[in-house]
């Protein structure tokens, strides 16, 4: 077995076993959704319901991906509405 260079071993495993189609598709899906959410929030703060309507995406999918973007620091939570029901979300500066 050819020894892989330290710090560049991903190529070794890629050549050996390849990457599953499912993993590729999952990455494409997340990249597309991430871009659509971030583009929508460039226009201003939005609630999950508003994002869901704008992106024609089910609410639970918006919750999952938006909260993931909050977790990884690309989006931040804004104010809650007057009815204390929905938070708005905005791009993290």
């Amino acid at each position: 077995m050819e020894e892989a260079e330290k710090g560049k071993t991903s190529r070794y495993l890629r050549d050996k076993k390849g990457v599953s189609e499912e993993a590729r598709e999952n990455l494409k899906k997340f990249t597309r959704i991430r871009k659509s959410i971030l583009d929508a929030l460039k226009e201003g703060e939005m609630t999950i319901a508003q994002l869901s309507q704008k992106l024609s995406m089910p609410g639970h999918e918006v919750v999952f991906y938006l909260m993931t973007l909050v977790k990884y620091g690309q989006v931040q939570t804004g104010e809650i509405d007057d009815m204390d029901e929905y938070y708005s979300y905005k791009l993290k500066k």
């Binding site: 020894e3 892989a4 330290k6 710090g7 560049k8 071993t9 991903s10 190529r11 070794y12 495993l13 890629r14 990457v19 599953s20 993993a23 590729r24 999952n26 990455l27």
Partner: peptide, 22 residues
């Protein structure tokens, strides 16, 4: 590893070079 696309981004930024796909 089931979901990794083996893009190598993690290896590039790891300061201690501790990621080892072998």
């Amino acid at each position: 590893i089931e979901n990794c696309t083996l893009c190598g981004a993690c290896e590039k930024v790891c300061p201690t070079k501790c990621i080892d796909f072998t």
